[in-house]
Design a protein around this nucleic acid. Structure first.
Lengths: 117, 117
DNA sequence: CTGTATCCGAGTCGATACTG
DNA sequence: CAGTATCGACTCGGATACAG
C-alpha cells in the first residue's frame, strides 16, 4: 500500500487487491463499517491511534476506489457519514478470511511465546 | 506493508495478516512458489522489476515469519532454493480469493475505461 | 464536528557497484 | 550464482496548529 504508484495500473490482481485494501488503516476501517454507516468522529473513537489526517486520507482513497460512500448532511454542526458501497461489501469475505487466518497465526505465536518463558 | 513496527504484536488479526503477506512483493513471491521450489535467480527472472536487494529482504522476512524455507546446497556454483512451508501453504486460499476479487475489479475498471474513450 | 495545512523525521526503495 | 554495501531520492506518517 502504500505505498503505491497508484496511477500505474496493476498487472497482477493480487497487487490490485492489496492496493485497494492494503493501506495502513483501510482494512480496519472497512471492518468497522461492516456493522453500518459511521461518522468521522465515531471512526476516530474506534481507532484512537489514527490521526485525523490519516483517517481522512484513507477514507478518501477508499471513496475514490468505490469501496466507501461519503454522505454529507448539510446541517450544523456538520455531519458526515461513511458507508460501505455494494462493491465494498464484496471484500468482506476476504477480510474475514484474513481475520481467521491471522487469528490462528497469532494464537500459534502466543503458544510459542509461552513455551519460551 | 512494510512498513511495520514488527516488534510490537498486532492486536488485530487482519493487521497481522497484512503484516505477513502485505509487503511490497510478498504476495507475488508466494504466488510464484505455489508450483514448487524456486531458485533465487528464477524468482528474479519471474519478477524483473524487483531488485536483488528487495527480493532478498522480502524472502528473509517470509522466512522469519515461517512462510518460506530457504535451502542452501553447498555446491559450486552456489545453489539456493526457496520453498513454501506447510504453514505457507495455508495462505494460498487467501491469495486465491484476493486474486479472484482483484481480477473482477480490474475487469470492471477496464470496462469503465473503454466507456470513457 | 469535520476536516486542512504545514513541518519534519524516519523509513522505504531503487540504482549501482561490488563480493564469496 | 546469490547475494551485500552504500548512497540518495522519495514517501509516509506523526505532531501540531488552524479553518469552515
Amino acid at each position: 500500500m502504500k505505498r503505491d504508484t497508484r496511477e500505474i495500473p496493476y498487472d497482477c490482481p493480487i497487487e490490485a487487491t492489496l492496493g485497494l485494501i492494503g493501506g495502513k488503516w483501510k482494512a480496519l476501517i472497512l471492518d468497522h463499517l461492516t456493522d453500518g454507516a459511521l461518522r468521522f468522529g465515531s471512526l476516530q473513537r474506534l481507532m484512537p491511534k489514527v490521526t485525523p489526517k490519516m483517517l481522512t486520507q484513507q477514507l478518501r482513497e477508499l471513496e475514490k476506489d468505490g469501496l466507501v460512500e461519503r454522505h454529507v448532511y448539510p446541517v450544523v454542526p456538520p455531519k458526515v457519514e461513511y458507508e460501505l458501497t455494494d462493491f465494498g461489501q464484496t471484500v468482506l469475505p476476504i477480510l474475514d478470511a484474513m481475520c481467521v487466518w491471522g487469528r490462528e497465526y497469532l494464537d500459534d505465536q502466543r503458544k510459542k511465546d509461552r513455551k519460551k518463558s
